[in-house]
Amino acid sequence: MKNIIEVKNLTKTYKRLKAVDNLTFEVHEGEILGLLGPNGSGKTTTINCILSLLKYDAGSISIFGREMQPNAYDIKKEIGVVFQEVAVFEELNVYDNIDYFCGLYIQDKKVRKTYIKEALELVGLEEFQKFYPKQLSGGLLRRLNIACGIAHKPKLIFLDEPTVAVDPQSRNNILDGIQTLRKKGATIIYTTHYMEEVEMLCDRILILDKGKILASGTNDALKALAHIEEKVSIEVMDLEETYIEKIQKFKNVEEVSYQNNLLFITYKKGNNNVTELIDYLKEEGIHYNKIYSERPTLNDVFLELTGKELRD
């Protein structure tokens, strides 16, 4: 597998704060790599360093097999970036905004025209071409932000939390768009602190915290790191302490908690855990309402690795 990006021992310090701490990783051709980490974990800083927007203290970065530098315009030509904050001209309408940013890469007018059309289609803004950014809703504005970053058909795309504060409809549109881009052959680096997105979208995931890589691998490989297999929650009214203690001693049970009439059990491993539990509740004549069973999430992995939640 070809490496599109190779980052070696990247370190970046702001005054005293080490924002990125000795990072080493690769990005393979055609994959979506997720950078997952809580606020301030160094995701944006890492991207800015890779793009030569920031000077870093140590390490090396190569893209397409060449060293990345501020004036490496032939590398930059193949890169598209969607920044965390919306970056468009207030004075230009949707079409003209995409036209300007695309025009920074593509000089040919005709080519640009078809590219802009495709970008508008991808993010579903065809009907808003003449709208000014002020007239767009938050979700539509984010879509414009994406279109501006990818209209020139880059081979390598960086998306920095493109779905922050976006309604479900726009979010689905954006996630679909990203998958379409990958199908067309782009390599994508996707940062977020929404683990659901990462699970759904990414081929490989890097979990970052305090500028360090805690773990990396595929979704399944990472979940294996969490020493739990299943999480079950049941709504039970006024459960007595003795029952809870009994459940605690069941096979495979890792932890039991009871709060606000909600019984919460995590299992280390095994199947049929829920059946066994229900049988027991019936036997004791305890009434229960809803039952949910979940596989562990990346949040559990993060919890396992750091002892804190990914999102507060």
Partner: peptide
């Protein structure tokens, strides 16, 4: 030179 717009210009392949 708005922060984001400027950043986009810097990372682009335009000199």
């Amino acid at each position: 030179k708005t922060k984001g717009v400027h950043k986009r210009t810097i990372i682009s392949s335009t000199n």
